[in-house]
Design a protein around this nucleic acid. Structure first.
Length: 314
DNA sequence: AACGCGGGGAT
DNA sequence: ATCCCAGCGTT
């Protein structure tokens, strides 16, 4: 859960997760839909699939235990260099440095390495960490470095005057703690999208996204992007026609929700819809679901906001 | 080496 | 409006 996600966002999910899946066997035998539902809102859903697959491997091939060998762990879904090192050092007391974003920033500053923070393991930093890591307490060392990065050696406004290793920091000596690492430039697009809440005989139509790509395997309401110069109603009718082969006979605006991704921001407009005729069966799975049953399916966060609105006012 | 993959908090 | 986060897998 902590892969590329802040501790504060993870804590409630972690607690709930352990209630649902108290041990490896419980996770291994759970259906994917429940696993994804428990992950709903956390993002990067491939992590949930990986963890699910890993639990199955541990139960089936390793007697229900987590292996304590580096090469074995590196072959398990979701276990890359960082996670493998973190498990080996924290759980098994083995001297592997856990090089995460915090530690990388701390070490770039201590060693005076300029440039952007690269996501890949840096050879020079790893060599230094292997030299410094105390064989007797590698887990404490790793966690101390991560904590130093999170609380003192922060990305912005580092608290150098409170830093216990200020005397050993090249960036501080040179007054470069604010420019190491160099901020990344990102483009930021804005998209407006419409979705149809299509009801028939007390049920609402939802469809499942493809098994790979963005929000893979999650469910959503039919709809799509609004093109330039196009009205929301026109876009809704066009998308419903494209996706379902059906004509929109009525559309009443319900709610607008904002939703931000890393690379873009979506402005979602939901409409209560009536359609004429039947819905075309598509390769992607579709379901008519009662409002109270929507919460059983994994949706992206933007859709969840719409569902909360529906539950409150319908 | 570069890119795709969420979502929310901090500033 | 930007930037970032206890990264990984694919190309």
């Amino acid at each position: 859960m902590l892969q590329q996600t802040t501790v504060g966002a993870v804590v409630p999910y972690y607690a709930e997760w352990l209630k649902l899946f108290p041990d490896l066997e419980a996770l291994a035998r759970a259906p994917l839909r429940k696993v994804l539902r428990a992950w709903q809102g956390l993002g990067y859903y491939q992590r949930a699939r990986n963890l699910h697959a890993a639990a199955k491997i541990f139960v089936r091939e390793h007697g229900g235990e987590v292996p304590s060998d580096q090469q074995t762990l590196l072959g398990v879904p979701g276990f890359g260099p960082y996670t493998t090192a973190a498990v080996l050092s924290l759980a098994f007391n083995q001297p592997y440095p856990a090089l995460d974003a915090n530690v990388r920033r701390v070490m770039m500053r201590i060693m005076g390495i300029h440039g952007e923070a690269d996501g890949r393991p840096d050879k020079n930093i790893l060599e230094r960490l292997y030299d410094e890591i105390p064989p007797g307490s590698p887990g404490d060392f790793n966690q101390a470095l991560m904590e130093l990065g999170a609380l003192i050696c922060r990305s912005r406004n580092p608290l150098c005057l409170l830093c216990p290793v200020q005397h050993a920091c090249r960036a501080y000596d040179d007054g470069e703690q604010e420019i190491i690492p160099k901020p990344k430039k990102r483009s930021y697009r804005h998209i407006t999208a419409v979705v149809g809440i299509i009801e028939r005989e007390g049920r609402i139509l939802i469809q499942q996204r493809p098994p790979a790509g963005l929000l893979a395997g999650l469910w959503e309401f039919p709809g799509g992007k609004v093109k330039r110069g196009e009205s929301r109603e026109k876009a809704l009718a066009r998308e419903i026609k494209e996706e379902l082969g059906a004509e929109v006979s009525q559309a009443k605006f319900l709610i607008q929700v904002d939703h931000s991704y890393t690379q873009f921001r979506v402005d979602l407009h939901a409409f209560a819809c009536r359609i004429k005729g039947d819905v075309e069966e598509k390769a992607g799975r579709q379901k008519w679901v009662a409002l109270k049953d929507l919460r059983k399916y994994p949706f992206p966060s933007g859709s969840v906001k719409i569902i909360h609105f529906l539950e409150k006012y319908f």
